[in-house]
C-alpha cells in the first residue's frame, strides 16, 4: 500500500469550481494512486506543504476560472526552493481566459515548469495514462 504513487491535487487560486476535482480524485484513486485532495481555493504554499509532508510524486493543479496563468506562476521555483526537486507538475482545466490555441497555451505553461498541460474536456483516463508513463508504471 505504501508503494502507491502519491498525488497532491487541488484547484488553485480563488477558484471555487468544486466538481471537476472531485471527479479527478475518484478517477486517480481508482487507478491506484494515493490522493491528497486539497479541494478548492488552494494556494501554491498549500500544494507545497502537502507535497512535502506526504512525500508526493506529483502535484496536479486544476484551474477553471481563467486566472490559471497568473495563479501558477512561480510554482515550480517554489517547489525547488522547498526541496521538491523532481516532483511532477501537471495542470489542467480551463486554464486560460477564453479560447486560445492550445499549443500556445501548452508552451507557455511548459515554460513555467509544468511537465504536462491538459486542455478543457480532457478525459481523466488520458491523464492517468500520462501519469503511468511518467512514473514508468
Amino acid at each position: 500500500m505504501e508503494n502507491k504513487k502519491k498525488l497532491v491535487i487541488g484547484v488553485i487560486g480563488a477558484d471555487v469550481h468544486a466538481v471537476g476535482i472531485q471527479i479527478l480524485n475518484h478517477a486517480f484513486e481508482d487507478a491506484g494512486f494515493e490522493v491528497t485532495n486539497l479541494g478548492v481555493m488552494v494556494s501554491q504554499e498549500e500544494y507545497i506543504a502537502a507535497a512535502v509532508e506526504t512525500a508526493a510524486d506529483a502535484i496536479m493543479v486544476s484551474s477553471l476560472y481563467g486566472h490559471g496563468e497568473l495563479d501558477c506562476r512561480g510554482l515550480r521555483e517554489k517547489c525547488q526552493e522547498a526541496g521538491l526537486k523532481d516532483i511532477l507538475l501537471y495542470v489542467g482545466g480551463n486554464i486560460v481566459v477564453g479560447k486560445q490555441p492550445f499549443d500556445e497555451v501548452e508552451a507557455r505553461f511548459k515554460k513555467m515548469g509544468f511537465d504536462r498541460v491538459f486542455g478543457p474536456g480532457t478525459d481523466p483516463q488520458d491523464t492517468i495514462k500520462a501519469l503511468k508513463e511518467d512514473f514508468g508504471l
Binding site: M1, E2, K4, K6, E34, V52, E53, T54, A55, A56
Partner: peptide
C-alpha cells in the same frame, strides 16, 4: 514527528 504515514521519511 514529521511526515504523514507513508509520506516524508
Amino acid at each position: 514527528t514529521g511526515g504523514t504515514d507513508g509520506g516524508n521519511k
